[in-house]
Design a protein around this nucleic acid. Sequence first.
DNA 1: GTGGGTGTTGCGCCATGTGCAACGGTCATT
DNA 2: AATGACCGTTGCACATGGCGCAACACCCAC
Lengths: 252, 252
Amino acid sequence: MSQTVDRALSILPLLAQGPADLGQVAERLGVHKSTALRLLRTLHEHGLVYRQQDQRYRLGARLFSLAQEAVENLDVREIAHPHLVELNERCGHTVHLAVYEEHEVLYIDKVESRYPVRMYSRIGKPVAITVAAVAKLLLADLTEPERRAIAERLDYPMYTSRSTPNAGAFLRELAVVREQGWATDLGGHEESINCVGAPVRGADGRVVAAMSVSAPNVVVTAEELLTLLPLVRRTADAVSRDYSGTTHTKKA
Amino acid sequence: MSQTVDRALSILPLLAQGPADLGQVAERLGVHKSTALRLLRTLHEHGLVYRQQDQRYRLGARLFSLAQEAVENLDVREIAHPHLVELNERCGHTVHLAVYEEHEVLYIDKVESRYPVRMYSRIGKPVAITVAAVAKLLLADLTEPERRAIAERLDYPMYTSRSTPNAGAFLRELAVVREQGWATDLGGHEESINCVGAPVRGADGRVVAAMSVSAPNVVVTAEELLTLLPLVRRTADAVSRDYSGTTHTKKA
DNA sequence: GTGGGTGTTGCGCCATGTGCAACGGTCATT
DNA sequence: AATGACCGTTGCACATGGCGCAACACCCAC
């Protein structure tokens, strides 16, 4: 592994916490100021870091463009998008698409609710992994040792009284989800919001993404939302078929 | 400037165009495979690059999280957001917030239209810089030599017959915008979409961001949209006041 | 089997990244 | 004004760490 690059990249999460000046960066990296300066300059030249008027550094705009382009050529997303839109048109609620990658679950697409009351979420935001329906779906598909390893390492914040309290409960929940092939989050993240979700599978049967429909209590009750389950599952299956069909014909 | 870091960072835009395998990366970087491997490994360890099943590399999830955190501690955005929401509630159309940074204009926030017909755009996406109302507002505030320099270097794609055709026309347009303190885009990007925008200014009077309201012809005509101008300007001024008020009390 | 295509490893050389120390600018204090 | 403290910046000599090479390990196709 390359030391120089390693140091340079360590600057990014550091700056993600807020702007910092040269001295602070050097100190937190444990290197001489001149070294930090050279690294920052290189990052700057690539637009990953921006220097504001007060001379302090913060993360740069190129980061957005990159993240943007990255998300745009995820093929699952591209294939799923029209289905998400259609699902949204049928039920009116917020629709999410999420993937699992390197111990994180994150939203890669979203179609907003047509109702005025919307839940707050944003593409790229890491999901509340212990409670979200999509997170359960994605993790449930991992091998048993992987699930255990992850479950052990997680925190279990009690967002509400219905949040998953600990690793044991989480693993049991994953077993259920794995068995039944769909998942819910009934007020586990925010008291008044419920979700139903279903998995998207690749040609080999492995779960490659998960989608869910979310709605607040004030719009529909949990029972009403559950009546959408067949529709959600059908949509997810349709995406799976599309995805499996095209997954072999990758562009050069 | 650091060679190693420079090479490593050059991999990112390369992968943004689509996944690539080790050989391709090495070739396009002009370095030996072993070197490329070491760089990719380092990027991987920081989560900026992900290795998919077919062994090819693509951009990783950490990029999203970083871009996300970065956008979240831009203070203009935080301050402007409630105003954008309010503006959206009053007029119902799509509202954008954009900033200029290092020769790029990009959206940093957006509130979706309440009408079913929506324009496609996404936070982080670089703006059509020669035609968008927000781009004109941000560039109009630069010094005269800066404006000239940028205008010379730009391409002037004719999205529609009303797009800005060349540098001369663009500079004249910027002069008008600078003078009047607001800007429009009437079908310059997409034939059927119009925008009105106004600048957000910092305590020193410089333009720090720009906001706009966009709507397709099928919902309101250009004339009707222009009647919203006073509302847009008032909102932008309100943001400017909020921003100037808090700009001195930066958190430690 | 055999061959061409991958990705990976160990190594010796020297380019390159490193810390140091000295410089220059800005701001607050007296 | 003069002083000094603080920050970012520069040039330099040293040796660390990154480099390409070549050999290896692997997989798939033929």
